[in-house]
Design a protein around this nucleic acid. Structure first.
Lengths: 95, 95
DNA sequence: ACTATAGGCAAGTGACAGCTTGCCTATCAA
DNA sequence: TTGATAGGCAAGCTGTCACTTGCCTATAGT
């Protein structure tokens, strides 16, 4: 669970999630091109690849292999619980 | 906004928020004691102090000075928007 | 005034994160 | 088969992070 927060802590990874939220099923090269053109992210291919590994390890990105292409998909299910961890717990609650 | 994610990326800071969610208005020393007894966090006073600075800079903790005591309060308002950034955005939306 | 308590400031250290570089594998088209 | 494309592996570098250490300030009690 801490992996999700660490994954979200980097601005480049947040841009990757932004991009995958707009358009799913993108390859590594497609993501690289769109990061540079739309978000002015100048990271290399290997850097983006390592970010995608981390996002996949955190459960935020799922991958699907097809021939020599590897498509990446966003998975928002880990995000749906994390914020409520502290929001729901009010002070002076004593069961 | 990225400060919020970076603040949440550290397990000790998440424990601090857990503790402040349970009991508000705690001093630095109170937080230190409770971190060690309840969460087995062995950080020093200065380490916890630096974590609280970071949490305050991220807007997750508010402080109030009273004499030589400084009370810390959790503020969950930054958390209420962050997760929805990617959850709300569905693919194939084209305005 | 003096001592203890609550907290702050700043330099230093060890470890890890993000990134690059270079080379390698696998798939597809010609 | 050959060349080009998509991606992976691994070592190395650099900056940042979490933490410690030592000293300092300020408030409260006696």
């Amino acid at each position: 669970m801490g992996d999700v927060f660490k994954a979200l802590a980097d601005p480049t990874r947040r841009h990757i999630l932004d991009e995958l939220a707009e358009r799913d099923d993108q390859t590594l090269f497609e993501i690289c091109v769109r990061l540079t053109t739309k978000y002015q992210v100048t990271s290399s291919r290997q850097a983006v690849s390592q970010h995608l590994e981390l996002l996949e390890a955190a459960g935020l990105v799922r991958t699907r292999r097809e021939g020599r292409y590897k498509f990446h998909t966003i998975d928002t299910s880990p995000l749906e619980q994390i914020a409520e961890r502290w929001i729901r717990t009010k002070p002076q609650e004593n069961p």
